[in-house]
Design a protein around this nucleic acid. Structure first.
Length: 520
RNA sequence: GGUGGGUUCGUAUAACGGCUAGUACUCAAGAUUUUCAUUCUUGCAAUAGGAGUUCGAUUCUCCUACCCACUACCA
């Protein structure tokens, strides 16, 4: 364990597509841990598989973290991955493909010391071996047993090896997994784990064909060079933890080996399997923070696109697999930093719950001021062809806030606060626009028109109710015919709220309009 | 198949080995209300199964079942 070392954690995604919420959660936990320990949150791009590289993915990752408010301290500058070392970014470049020169020597060092070897088996040969084993109901594994019968620097003569290294390009460097050794590991979340090397295979560390390391080598070398103190990553890496321990040992870096924490996976809402990038559109909720345009031109659903506030999204994600130990559920990013602890991270996989996500957004929406929300609503109004002042919009929001989960709901909940109805729901009109009701309504219109000034919601409600009751009219009928004239339907906001928002003049105008359109 | 990880209401989770297993979301009922929604109240609902240790097990141990991950010259 490393004492007194400055905390440095990293998020190291592979740019193979858009980051999904599982990845965002991993980044978030890294961020929370770093901030809590006054440490540094590094972003590193692990692009050692050129075949799977997807253009735009890197920008997406940076943009997504930015939107979430969990911006890296190191590795990113001005929205771009840092390509050269500098005072603020002393470990650059932060893209592994640009660090390729670094890894070869480390792989060679392992060979020198007897911890790795050259393997000359072609990819096709290995595929054939696997197929053959499978046909016998077995599994072929390149390990301490089978390597003795394969073409590598352990079985071939020195001169043959020399010759093959010079004349062929298909070879790899493999880790020489020791025989029958117990690897004892400690995970910050899972506790002590032991594995026998007998069950492990000889992983490829370096590929001559690509002149690139594989994940395992690059990851360990970079974590070491970048002085990472804690590795917080997904549970899918737990099976390779023994290899990584062995690597640290073989390099002689055990004293600076980071501590590991393996996060459980995010599971599909229904039950089976981990959440995957495809699930979003299938299951009807976003799995991506930001929209992503695929090669087919299709744009995916996203949290930002669906109208989630980043704070709500982050809060929701933080609570998927962690809790502060008390009953608080709404925590700002700063409060999360304060409360976070790896010890309280849940070991089991968490089923993602779309309903709870909405609940979080609703809570954050309600906590925001009407003016703040008005600023966000104005552009949406504009899309509907409505120009309104911020003041008017804020007033409208004050009466519809409780009916909304997202800012866009303000419109669907009550467009009539901004646009007079041009049509009336047939069924409601048939029911409430009767000769009897019209009689009441025309008198009520005069009553309202006689107000000398605008009134508050309560005053309007009281006045109208008193007027109707004192005349002993059927309250519901009158109110709904009034609502119909104001909104175009018989359901929606309270009458007083509507009048308060749109004002007396507009109220009277709409009643008159209804009479004109629907007749008396 | 092998290796590793996991298992508390439908979901997310709480509970130094010790009260009637708590909370939130969802759902249901009731109240409030001019409609719808909100709000409030109440309710439904869980320790996977079996052994063991113990005065006492959701908690510790073992077995079984089920779920998940990994098992690539992908990360």
């Amino acid at each position: 364990m490393s004492e007194n070392k400055k905390t440095r954690v990293r998020f190291a995604p592979s740019p193979t597509g858009p980051l999904h919420i599982g990845g965002v959660r991993t980044a978030l936990y890294n961020y929370l841990y770093a901030k809590q320990h006054n440490g540094t949150f590094v972003l590193r791009i692990e692009d050692t598989d050129s075949a799977r590289f997807v253009s735009g993915a890197e920008e997406y990752i940076i943009g997504a973290l930015e939107w979430c408010g969990i911006t890296p301290d190191e590795g990113v500058e001005n929205g771009k991955i840092v390509e050269e070392a500098s005072a603020r970014h002393p470990h650059g470049p932060y893209r592994q493909s640009q660090r390729r020169g670094i890894y070869r020597a480390y792989a060679e060092q392992l060979i020198q010391n007897g911890y790795a070897y050259y393997a000359f088996d072609s990819a096709e040969e290995l595929v054939a071996k696997r197929a053959e084993a499978e046909s016998k109901g077995q599994t072929f594994i390149y390990n301490q047993v089978t390597r003795k019968g394969l073409r590598n620097s352990l079985t071939l003569s020195a001169s043959e090896v020399e010759h093959l290294l010079e004349t062929t390009t298909g070879w790899t460097i493999r880790f020489k997994m020791p025989e029958n050794e117990i690897v004892a590991m400690d995970d910050l979340i899972r506790g002590h784990i032991e594995v026998n090397t007998e069950t492990l295979d000889d992983k490829v560390l370096w590929k001559r064909a690509d002149e690139l390391p594989t994940y395992h080598l690059a990851n360990i070398v970079d974590d070491y060079l970048m002085e990472i103190t804690e590795v917080i990553r997904g549970e899918e890496w737990l099976p390779s933890l023994p290899l990584h321990y062995m690597l640290y040992k073989s390099f002689g870096w055990e004293s600076s080996r980071p501590r590991f924490a393996h996060l459980s996976l995010l599971l599909k809402p229904g039950g089976q399997g981990k959440l995957s990038k495809r699930d979003g559109d299938k299951l009807g909720f976003p799995v991506f923070p930001l929209p992503w345009t695929g090669t087919d031109g299709e744009v995916t659903n996203s949290y930002r696109g669906a109208g989630y506030f980043p704070e709500a999204f982050i809060n929701m994600l933080a609570f998927l697999g962690w809790n502060p130990g008390d009953e608080r559920e709404i925590l700002s990013l700063d409060e999360l930093v304060e409360a976070f602890s790896l010890e309280r991270v849940i070991r089991s996989g968490a089923h993602f719950n779309p309903e709870k996500a909405k609940w979080y957004n609703r809570e954050y929406l309600r906590a925001k001021s009407d003016t703040e929300l008005a600023k966000l609503y104005l552009p949406i109004l504009k899309e509907h062809g409505v120009e309104a002042t911020e003041e008017y919009t804020a007033r409208a929001i004050s009466v519809i806030k409780d009916r909304a989960t997202f800012v866009a709901d303000f419109w669907t909940a009550a467009p009539y606060l901004f646009v007079a109805p041009s049509e009336y729901v047939q069924k409601d009109a048939a029911k409430f626009w009767t000769a009897e009701n019209c009689g009441y309504l025309s008198k009520l219109r005069s009553h309202i028109a006689a107000y000398k000034s605008e009134l508050e919601v309560a005053a309007i409600a009281e006045s109208i109710e008193n007027y109707i009751r004192s005349n002993q009219w059927p309250f519901g009928k009158v109110m709904n015919s009034l609502r119909l004239s104001l909104t175009g339907s018989a359901s929606g906001l309270g009458i007083a709220e509507i009048i308060y928002t749109i004002g007396l003049q507009e109220t009277v105008r709409r009643i008159d309009n209804a009479f004109k359109t629907l007749g008396t």
